[in-house]
Design a protein around this nucleic acid. Structure first.
Ligand SMILES: [Mn+2]
Ligand SMILES: [Mn+2]
Ligand SMILES: [Mn+2]
Ligand SMILES: [Mn+2]
Lengths: 225, 225
DNA sequence: TCTTTTATTTTGATTTGTCAAAATTCAATC
DNA sequence: GATTGAATTTTGACAAATCAAAATAAAAGA
């Protein structure tokens, strides 16, 4: 069985692979800083993962998950996200806090317990932040989403997914009414001010910097997920 | 924060201290075998715990928890037992399996989560095996129980607590109807055969060896816990 | 009292995951 | 082409937790 540390590395590599073009390697520096370790530590861990056939490692190039590593990463992600749903839906914890709780619990859940939890929750497909929950098989094909900055203006859209787990950011979104499922319209974009304005249905319009805007993913209001 | 290993040692020392006379030290060999490590490992860990003021260690004598160590052990035990209640009552897991699940989860639950869980479960006082759940303050005063071997014969009693977590034993008890809360009468004791017979209300009488019998604790049926 | 047995401690290694700092490589700039 | 700089790797060290096997102490037996 992979250690907690190995699980965390694999999950982190998976997440960073997602955010970059097909087949491109995740640079060691990026991995090190994501894991909050020194670059040398990341190098030695990755060699270790490579010996275990969990990643392909190209010295001076970077790292990429193997088929096996990918499967393990998805299992961790599945546990993480199902736990988040449980914490929010059942125990009523704040969606801004559950990420950190799940970061620990994701390593302590057996397969049998996970199945029971999944059934108990009614086989949810998304976590409280709109992130898809991998099935026992693998990751469902992702719906096509646009972030607030790129979204068409004046069209009825719905918040689908938040790409940042920072509690302060999540609490800010909750105050504004920018939570998954919320109906919104992007009303303006100011390239000079580097800002974008979005109007959540029934709330006040909100103006965000583009770096914040790019963390909020939308889908057409018509589209059923 | 204490490591998972430290938490496990403290909890184990606590449990073994319980089973012996007041203030008596837990021998290193007993601790080592309970932790499934070699005696040398236990010695070096205990010195370590002693440096952290979590235990009093008397070389060639044994080990005992300090006030601080005791508090930490009780917190772990509280997490363990609340998790067990949750797994059985909410997710419907088998009482024979939950001990091993809780063994991991007890290290992954934050204080905030624990409070929520406690409230959600309605502040239970006992786990599925009849073990008392320590409050945030400390361990409640234990009710006086007798095991099946020592119990008076012919009196209406109730199963209160099972002092063994072995899944095979627990499944056996479930088949016989010897689960906490069950009304029973001890009908016979045979010193020569080293056996005792107990009759669970509405079920068939069961004859047990005394070592098994001593793991099943009873209280008078009249006594309200 | 002397010897044997058993429990415990000591010693020397090993594994995992980490850091600091020096060395290396590759790319960009001059 | 030589030089500089950024990213990465290498090296040497360390802490936590563990084992195997040798040394020691205490208890039990003769
Ligand atoms: Mn984690
Ligand atoms: Mn999430
Ligand atoms: Mn444990
Ligand atoms: Mn229990």
């Amino acid at each position: 069985m992979p250690s907690v540390t190995v699980e965390n590395y694999l999950k982190t590599i998976y997440l960073h692979q997602q955010r970059r073009p097909r087949e491109e390697l995740v640079p060691m520096g990026e991995l090190a800083s994501a894991m909050s370790v020194t670059p040398g530590t990341a190098t030695s861990m990755v060699k270790n993962l490579s010996d275990q056939e969990l990643v392909d490692y190209e010295p001076r190039g970077g790292v990429r998950l193997t088929r096996t590593g990918d499967k393990t990463a998805l299992q961790v992600l599945r546990r993480h996200r199902l736990v988040e749903v449980f914490l929010v839906e059942v125990l009523g914890l704040d969606w801004a806090e559950v990420h950190d709780e799940a970061e620990e619990l994701e390593h302590a859940i057996s397969d049998k317990l996970l199945d029971r939890l999944d059934a108990f929750l009614g086989y949810p497909e998304f976590d409280p932040h709109g992130d898809p929950i991998p099935s026992a098989k693998g990751m469902p094909k992702a719906a096509e989403l646009v972030d607030i900055v790129e979204a068409p203006q004046g069209r009825a859209m719905r918040v689908a997914r938040i790409k940042d787990q920072d509690p302060a950011f999540l609490r800010f979104l909750e105050r504004c009414g920018l939570t998954p499922g919320q109906l919104v319209t992007v009303t303006g974009r100011d390239a000079v001010a580097d800002a974008v304005t979005v109007h959540p249905d029934g709330k006040d319009p909100v103006t965000l910097g583009t770096s914040a805007g790019r963390k909020i993913m939308l889908r057409p209001a018509s589209q059923r997920r």
